[in-house]
Each structure stands twice: as C-alpha cells, then as structure tokens.
Design a protein around this nucleic acid. Structure first.
Length: 423
DNA sequence: TCTGGGGTCCTAGGACCC
DNA sequence: TCTGGGGTCCTAGGACCC
C-alpha cells in the first residue's frame, strides 16, 4: 500500500520550552546555549532576525546579545525531555504509526488508500499539541521522509500555510526543489554540498535529476538513497521500534582546562556512573568500554592531543564499580602530564540485554551485585540524582561544566515547581 | 578566558581463514 | 614476464543527523 509521511517538527523547540514558563519572553529575542554554555543551539525567530547564527560560539556573539538584550538560557534537558515526551504522547494517541525521530521531531505514516483529508488531520494534530502542551509545531507531508522534511521547512517558514504544508506533485514540486539549496536537503551535509557544488549541483532539483550511479560513487549508498527519495521513491522506512541501541556515550567539556590526573579521574568516574544508570534503565549490559580525553581543538599554541583506550570485558556487565575500575585503568594509560585537558568521556559499546550474555568458560562468574545496583537506582530516582554516589566521583567537582543561565526544572522537581500567585 | 553532547551508518584497509 | 579467489571480522575515520 502506498504511504505518505508527515514530519511533525516543534518550532524553535528549546526556546519554546523556556518561554512556556516565561510568557513575558514571547516576541523577545531568546537563545539557548549548549552544555558548558559553549554554543548557541536554539534561537527564537527574533534572535534569528538579529543575525545570530546556529552553533555560533557564545563568546563570539556576546556583544551582539548584550546590545539587543537577548535573553540567554543554559540548556535544561530535564525540561525539554519532559515536554518532548508530552508532545510525543499526543502524537501516539492520535496516530497509529509514529516514529520518534529526535527530541523535537516525529515522523508519522499516513494511509492513502481511503479518501482522507490529510491536511485537515495535520491541522488537528497541530491544534491539539498547542492546546495540551503549549508548543507550536510545523507539519510537512510528502511521499518520502526526505520530501516531508522539505515540506515541513516550508510550513515553518511561510506563515500563510498555518503550519501545515504538503509537498506538491509534478512541476510544482520540481519548482519547489529548485528553490531549496542542496545543503538543506536531509542527509546532505557541508562536505557533500561542497563536493556537489563543484559539479554544478546546487539545488535539490539538480540533485534529484543527477545520475544515480555517479551520486553513488561520490556520496555512497546513503546519497543514492537521498536521490531516490527526492524522486518520490521511498527508501527510508518508518522505524517505530528502533533496534537495540549500539552505544551509550557520556562526556562533557570542562569549565576550564583540567591538568591533574586526580581531577580527570573524578570526572571519568562521574561519566561512567551516568552512563551506567542509562545502561541499566534500558536493561542492557556493556561488553566493552572506551575512555577518552582531549585537549582543546581550538588552542593554537599546542598541537591537540586526543587519545582513547578501549577495554573489552570477558562478560558484559552493568555494574558501576566494575566499569569505573576499568575506566580509571584505561585513563591511566592515556593520561599525559603537563597538558590541559578540555574534555573527557566514556563510551559503552557491545551492548546486550542483561542476562542474555554467553557465560564464559574460563572466567569465574563476576562478583557483582545486581540488587545493589537496583537499590542505588531506586534511591536516586526517588530522592534525586546523586543522593547516593560513588566516592570516586568526587564532591567539589571543580571541573564541572559551566551553566550560568539555567532555568528551573519546572516540571520535574517538586522544589522547582512554578508558583502561581492569586489575589 | 570562552567553541556541545549523543547518536548512526558507511567505507577502506588490514589481518586472517580456507 | 607470470604471484588465486572468495570470504569474514575488526578498526579507524569520515560524514551525517538533531
């Protein structure tokens, strides 16, 4: 059966979340920063109009921000995650086939075999999300995910569409593709668009008409798929139950460069503990652990130093102390004295469902206590993160990331609920 | 002074097997 | 002169996404 795709995309999502609890900031320029207050990762329309670029380093735009009194927020993922969940729940209530694609986007698969007012249904979804959560979404409809993406951008950018736009058939569709820069096509990043431009392929229409074999040779099969999708041939299916996760990464930049091994150890132990919580929450165990450290890529004075160390476990585990021990041992092998490290991290890979691992012939069973981990997670869930934690994680954490402009956890912490004053 | 974090997929090349 | 053919697995690196 032929299907259509709709992409539901939350407008300026992080900014919209912040404004939800600060309605006086509506129509004012607002930006949200990445972790460590490093880059700008969300902008209100007013901030975009001021010429503040996506992913611009905060310190480089600070003057512009000050001059126009742009309101700045550190990222607050507890808030965004919670509001995202509310939006996605509504979509799943209204539609049978939903793929949650990212924190602020979902694809929906729509039937086309019955006479059905797609745009009308999309408008209903949009109204319901706004009514129940207070977030504005744009919805694009197309015969492939790639075309739905292009349509959603049009829905967002041109107010006349009331937030819903269906990719048109025939010549009108080609005309629209002619107006889309090739780098704005889903799956075509900076490197590929530079390469394509050198061969005269500058618009989405040029790409659609390109020779498939040549595209395959230049952009591999993923590029070839994109060309098919632009031609209306669906190659990227709706994925309602994404397969088991491949890896769990936990890493942060430091407030200021860290030199001491002792500080790095604390940071790495903290990241291991975070990753392990995520691991157990998905009932997974890790078969390998990688730890990495890096100096700043931007520091011109010294050559950058980045090293990682991989350790494979005889048997998969989700036991925090075991993982911390391995990570710290790995850290010792890659640490070099006298450098100022800007970032460290831990990646858990070879993930498998807990309890399904192959027993090992020669290693004795690991002396690890699953009930202990369960108790730890239960306490921290009930009483707040870090109620119980490992000594190796440290206490003062002088390396912790910068978060100078963080809003309260309005919806996920009793202590930070917004107050309503009545007279 | 100050430049995010968390993912996925693809390819090439080396090592190894029969 | 001339050096097989077919395969798997692993890793590193590149590119992309939000």
């Amino acid at each position: 059966m032929k299907k259509l795709f709709a992409l539901v995309d939350c407008n300026n999502f992080y900014v919209s979340c912040e404004r939800l609890f600060r309605p006086e900031l509506r129509y004012k320029p607002v930006v949200v920063l990445s972790n460590n207050d490093g880059c700008i990762i969300a902008r209100s329309n007013e901030a975009k109009a001021l010429g503040i670029d996506m992913a611009a380093p905060y310190f480089k735009t600070r003057e512009l921000i000050r001059r126009h009194q742009v309101r700045v927020f550190s990222s607050n993922y507890a808030l965004y995650g919670d509001l995202s969940h509310r939006v996605m729940t509504i979509l799943q209530e209204m539609e049978a086939q939903v793929e949650i694609y990212s924190i602020d986007e979902a694809f929906i698969s729509l039937p086309t075999d019955t006479p059905f007012d797609l745009a009308g249904q999309a408008a209903l979804i949009r109204a319901r999300v706004f009514q129940d959560v207070g977030i504005t979404v744009s919805i694009g409809i197309g015969s492939t995910k790639t075309l739905a993406k292009i349509a959603s951008r049009r829905a967002k950018k041109e107010p006349g569409h009331q937030g819903v736009f269906a990719f048109p058939a025939g010549a009108a569709g080609d005309h629209l593709l002619g107006q889309v820069e090739v780098g704005d096509v889903w799956g075509i990043g900076r490197r590929s668009s530079e390469k394509l431009a050198r061969h005269g392929i500058k618009s989405a229409w040029h790409l659609k008409e390109a020779e498939p074999e040549w595209i395959r040779s230049q952009l591999t099969v993923t590029g070839a798929r994109t060309v098919m999708e632009l031609n209306g041939i669906s190659c990227i299916a709706l994925d309602q139950a994404p397969g088991n996760r491949q890896s769990i990464l936990s890493s942060r930049s430091f407030k200021k460069p860290v030199q001491e091994l002792a500080d790095l150890k604390e940071a790495v132990a903290t990241y291991v503990a975070m990753a392990a919580v995520k691991l157990r929450s998905q009932n997974l165990s890790a078969g390998a652990l990688q730890v990495f450290i890096a100096t700043s890529r931007f520091d011109q004075r010294l050559p950058p130093y980045a090293k990682s160390s991989m350790h494979t476990l005889a048997r998969p585990t989700a036991h925090t102390p075991t993982l911390i021990r391995l990570a710290l041992a790995g850290l010792g092998t890659i640490y070099r004295q006298g450098l100022g490290y800007q970032k460290a991290g831990v990646m858990l890979t070879d993930l498998s469902p807990t309890g399904c691992g192959q027993a090992h012939l020669f290693s004795p069973p690991l002396l690890e206590s699953r009930p202990l981990m369960t108790a730890l997670d239960t306490v921290n869930k009930r009483w707040g993160r870090n109620t119980l934690h490992y000594g190796a994680e440290g206490l003062s954490k002088p390396w912790a990331m910068r978060q100078d402009f963080k809003s309260p956890a309005y919806t996920t912490s009793w202590q930070e609920l917004p107050l309503v004053h009545c007279r």
